[in-house]
């Protein structure tokens, strides 16, 4: 069947099977490989995208259930001129990524948090991010990046 949805502001469609997951639809159907798949039990969050503005783990949603909706992926997160958005820039500025694999999901979940709660505490950031696993950074610099993107003084975290 053909499934159509708005992805990063543009209508896009691809042929899929009924069992095709949104993550596969994006990666294989549309070639948007920035959305990563790190597990098969909805536990790691690497595949997080926004569906109608809400964070969703795209490995657990059927593509056909998202038909007609609006999806934002990591490829749609930069500013219109191609420069890094505030949250992306904060991740670079604070070394909030190493291997880069969990990063798209981390950026998407962090953006969702800041949409929901523009000035979170460190505890709130850690709680909100607990559905996204990073094996490289120990979260320290991810938390710092999110706090910085929220305009908080990230120096309030443990000294280095």
């Amino acid at each position: 069947m053909k499934v159509t949805m708005t992805v990063n502001g543009r209508p896009m469609s691809a042929e899929t099977e009924g069992r095709t997951l949104l993550s596969s639809f994006l990666r294989e159907g549309l070639g948007l490989t920035g959305t990563h798949v790190g597990c098969d039990t909805t536990q790691c969050g690497a595949c997080t995208v926004h569906v109608d503005g809400e964070p969703v783990k795209s490995c657990t949603v059927l593509a056909q259930d998202v038909a007609g909706k609006s999806v934002t992926t990591i490829e749609g997160m930069a500013n219109k001129d191609g420069s890094l958005s505030v949250i992306q820039q904060a991740f670079q500025d604070h070394h909030g990524l190493q291997c880069g694999f969990c990063t798209p999901g981390m950026v998407m979940i962090s953006a969702a948090l800041l949409n929901e709660k523009p000035n979170p505490t460190e505890e709130e950031v850690r709680h909100y991010l607990k559905g996204n696993i990073c094996r490289c950074t120990g979260y320290h610099n991810i938390v710092k990046a999110v706090m910085a993107a929220a305009g908080a003084d990230s120096r309030k975290l443990a000294a280095e």
Partner: peptide
């Protein structure tokens, strides 16, 4: 700051599973 971050932060990383 890391230069590799640009591609990782914009979904342009190229991991083995991304290659077709």
């Amino acid at each position: 700051l890391r230069r590799e971050d640009i591609r990782f932060l914009t979904g342009k990383g190229r991991y083995t599973a991304d290659i077709s």
